[in-house]
């Protein structure tokens, strides 16, 4: 079962390695990890998507809370979750294919951010499921390279991680 865990931490050196070390030590595979600062420059927010059963997640939350630099840990349920991921894709595209690709991008909500004689670079930001569908649609053209940021997530409605 996939879990999305949000962690607020003090922006100190070594924090990220402590967090990722904790996951690997407790036998928890990380699917993705995204990190960036929050409105307070001293606080970073880490979003981790990982696989594991309920008991393991509970243990992990407790272990994460034990790290001295941890401010708040919250596992967001799928119902309250608003997940987003950004993806850049470079595909083969000759001048004849450009129009067709443009249509796919428009329908799927992707942008064209760069272009060369025989490639196009596309950008899309959406839920991981939507990104997968887009990737499938674009695959036939020949994918040269894909970069993903990893999932970040926020709660729906007025709730925040601090609540």
């Amino acid at each position: 079962m996939k879990h999305t865990i949000s962690i607020l931490v003090e922006n100190h050196a070594g924090v990220l390695s402590r967090i990722s070390g904790l996951f690997s030590r407790r036998g928890f595979n990380i699917d993705s990890l995204a990190v960036g600062r929050t409105d307070d420059p001293e606080i970073s927010r880490v979003t981790i998507v990982a696989d594991g059963d309920e008991h393991t997640v509970e243990q992990l939350e407790k272990q994460l809370n034990k790290l001295i630099d941890t401010i708040k840990v919250k596992t967001l349920s799928h119902k309250e979750l608003l997940p987003r991921e950004l993806q850049l894709i470079k595909i083969n595209a000759n001048p004849q294919q450009r129009g067709e690709i443009l249509t796919v991008c428009e329908i799927m909500g992707a942008k064209i951010v760069d272009i060369s004689a025989n490639t196009m670079t596309l950008e899309i930001s959406d839920t991981p499921a939507h990104l997968m569908r887009f990737e499938e649609l674009i695959r036939p053209y020949g994918i040269k390279e894909i970069v993903r940021t990893g999932v970040i997530a926020i709660q729906k409605g007025s709730d925040t991680i601090k609540k």
Binding site: G14, R18, G21, I68
Partner: peptide, 15 residues
């Protein structure tokens, strides 16, 4: 600090 990470309560490298 890296090597001891799994078995310290906390650690500091003073910079």
């Amino acid at each position: 600090t890296g090597a001891a990470e799994p078995f310290v309560k906390n650690s500091y490298l003073i910079k």
